[in-house]
């Protein structure tokens, strides 16, 4: 494995991105909206197309704003449909993002008659390429992606720290939050805006697959390891960083075991987060499969019961 500064920068970008996603991801998972990242990743297309049609250029700022607006609209429409139409939120999300994507596809077809506007290359950055696209900052050459993703991370961190109590309350008991005077709606849309900004910024910098994976998998891993919110956020952040490091390392090494040269880092980061999830799933001291098997065995030895059977004690009590 040849490691150089480019690899270091790739991993740094990966970690920043993973942590920036894991923070809002914890609350998404707790609110049963894990699929939001995927929905937004498809739904930004019309935003990109409209921004392109208005400005006529592929300037990244206007594209960014268009995509973020489309992402927020996804959340808003989903909320409306599920509230007014009484529709399951997953279904509402699915309808909204497929429709927005279809509109985007048609717009792009019409816009791209003249200019090359390939959804693939506008939308999906590649994390391996980030170290080459640098900007000067204080005398150093820093990858642009570090700045973009880093500032998103800072914004997310500040919002989560400032509104931690409110987010916690509205994640676990939205009704109580509402009665105590925190607007659940405001927090919901704030979270959705965070997710939209994070998703779009990270797409453009490193590609969509890392974002979707890091929004869901590290928080899910953390949920298997703890039942408290603060440790959950911390574990999710650690898992996300570990997945980023592990992902890039395995992108360089794993294909060589099979006789190939190397593979994409973004795919392997998602795969690495899956691996960490699997480890937690098997070995978690509270929820793990092994722990559950041991527990079952102990029950069997102690009470002579297996799953699905009523303990003898209960029947004795009934006879009394």
């Amino acid at each position: 494995m040849n490691w150089d500064t480019y690899d270091t920068w790739t991993v740094v970008v990966g970690i920043l991105c993973a942590v920036a996603c894991a923070l809002p991801g914890c609350f998404l998972v707790l609110r049963k909206m894990s699929m939001m990242g995927d929905a937004i990743s498809h739904a930004v297309l019309p935003g990109l197309a409209v921004a392109f049609m208005i400005t006529g250029a592929r300037a990244s700022v206007s594209m960014f704003i268009g995509a973020v607006i489309a992402g927020i609209l996804t959340a808003v429409f989903t909320q409306w449909i599920s509230k007014f139409g009484n529709v399951d939120r997953g279904a509402a999300m699915g309808i909204v993002f497929t429709t927005l994507f279809a509109i985007g596809l048609i717009l792009i077809r019409r816009a791209a008659d003249h200019v090359d506007l390939d959804p693939g290359c506008v939308l999906y950055g590649a994390i391996e390429m980030t170290p080459w696209d640098t900007v000067g900052l204080g005398g150093y050459q820093i990858p642009r992606a570090v700045l973009v993703v880093g500032s998103v991370l800072v914004i997310n961190l500040v919002i989560v720290c400032l509104l931690f109590k409110e987010f916690r309350l509205s994640a676990f008991d939205p009704d109580l939050a509402e009665t105590l005077g925190f607007s659940s709606n405001f927090l919901h849309y704030l979270l959705m805006t965070m997710v939209a900004i994070t998703t779009v910024a990270a797409f453009e910098a490193v590609g969509s697959i890392i974002v979707i994976a890091m929004l869901i998998v590290p928080p899910a891993t953390a949920l298997l390891l703890t039942r408290r919110l603060v440790p959950m956020v911390i574990v999710a952040v650690i898992t996300a960083s570990a997945a980023a490091v592990l992902g890039h390392m395995s992108a360089l090494t794993v294909p060589q075991w099979l006789g190939y040269k190397s593979t994409t880092t973004s795919g392997m980061m998602a795969a690495a987060s899956g691996l960490l999830f699997a480890l937690a799933w098997i070995f978690s001291p509270s929820e793990g499969i092994i722990q559950k098997m041991l527990h079952r065995k102990r029950n069997l030895l102690e009470f002579g019961i297996t799953d699905g059977e009523e303990p003898d004690r209960v029947q004795e009590n009934e006879n009394l």
């Binding site: 699929m35 697959i209 994976a213 998998v217 998602a270 987060s273």
Partner: peptide, 16 residues
């Protein structure tokens, strides 16, 4: 969460 996990991890492996 199960759906999101399968989607992202499998898609990641697929890309790789």
């Amino acid at each position: 969460v199960g759906m999101g996990f399968v989607l992202s991890v499998f898609f990641g492996i697929g890309v790789a």
